[in-house]
Design a binder for these strands. Structure first.
Length: 270
DNA sequence: AAAGACACCTGGGAGC
DNA sequence: TGCTCCCAGGTGTCTT
């Protein structure tokens, strides 16, 4: 489900309901997520006040004065507010119950998501190697060019590498490469400076636009406010293999690149 | 060091 | 109706 825009949409949706609230308890019905939910997490969180909700890449950090609850939504996760007495459904794995009677509920059918703890003053090891935020000034043409230099890997796989830049998943990698006119299989080290600059611009533009639209709802994504995302209407290539290119009418080609479905226009993208 | 394959897990849709 | 197979928004780890 979630790439960066969906995670940011979730963050904005839950933030007003959580910041300043005190944790009553953490109910873990299914601890077997991508990594086991730490057994002591409930003790860590009990009685703490959520001071802020922060996003780093696709992680959400619920900060307290002792450390942070660190959520990742994997492929199929979502987070939303419910009344604490709302009966859980089958895949509702964790409730963060607040003293005001509400709860932050984690649903994740495939369980590729996670809920971990980051101690105060430490950086969790999963965050250490992350590259810059795509919407920050640290992600610029100099950075991307340096990451591409000498690399034979396909540019699509490079921009999806979280050590290079965080938050660019399969949907937006496809879309950004189309917008920049770059073939997804092109070797990263064989792209001109000018086209790298264009790619940086398009990644930022598309992610920002998707956030504005509340993310992309494919199957069942809903933001923290319970509304679906509307960016699907803006997709030019993702999910459109075989259909006509919006720019030149050529049928879009669909291939697999690193086990991920990849769609591009063989005429517009070189 | 870099590239590629594989792993984790469930549900939905296509095809027979 | 029901079975099998393939696919899905992620990403750490193991193998070449």
């Amino acid at each position: 489900m979630p790439e960066l825009p969906e995670v940011e949409t979730t963050r904005r949706g839950i933030e007003p309901h959580i910041v300043g609230q005190q944790v009553d308890q953490l109910i873990v019905r299914q601890p077997k997520l991508r990594w086991p939910v730490p057994e002591q997490l409930s003790d860590y969180l009990k009685g703490k006040v959520i001071e802020s909700v922060q996003r780093r890449g696709k992680y959400l950090l619920l900060n307290t004065d002792q450390g942070a609850a660190m959520y990742h939504l994997g492929m199929s996760g979502s987070l939303y507010m419910v009344s604490a007495d709302q009966p859980p459904a089958y895949h509702d794995h964790v409730d963060l119950v607040l003293k005001n009677g509400m709860a932050l509920r984690l649903t994740d059918p495939r369980r590729f998501g996670s809920l971990l703890w980051q101690a105060r003053g430490e950086q969790h090891e999963l965050l250490v190697k992350l590259g810059p935020e795509p919407l920050s000034d640290a992600f610029d043409a100099d950075h991307l060019q340096a990451a591409c230099a000498g690399r034979k890997v396909a540019i699509k796989q490079l921009v999806m590498n979280s050590a290079v830049v965080v938050g660019v998943g399969n949907i937006y990698a496809n879309e950004a490469l189309f917008a920049a006119g770059i073939h997804p299989k092109r070797a990263a080290g064989r792209i001109s400076r000018q086209r790298i600059e264009q790619l940086v611009v398009e990644i930022k533009r598309i992610l920002a636009a998707a956030i504005e639209q509340g993310g992309t709802t494919l199957k069942d994504f809903i933001g923290g406010d319970g509304k679906p995302g509307y960016f699907k209407q803006e997709l030019s290539v993702y999910g459109r293999g075989g259909e006509a290119c919006v720019r030149c009418d050529t049928p879009l080609t669909e291939i697999r690149l690193g086990q991920r479905s990849t769609v591009f226009c063989p005429n517009c993208q070189r």
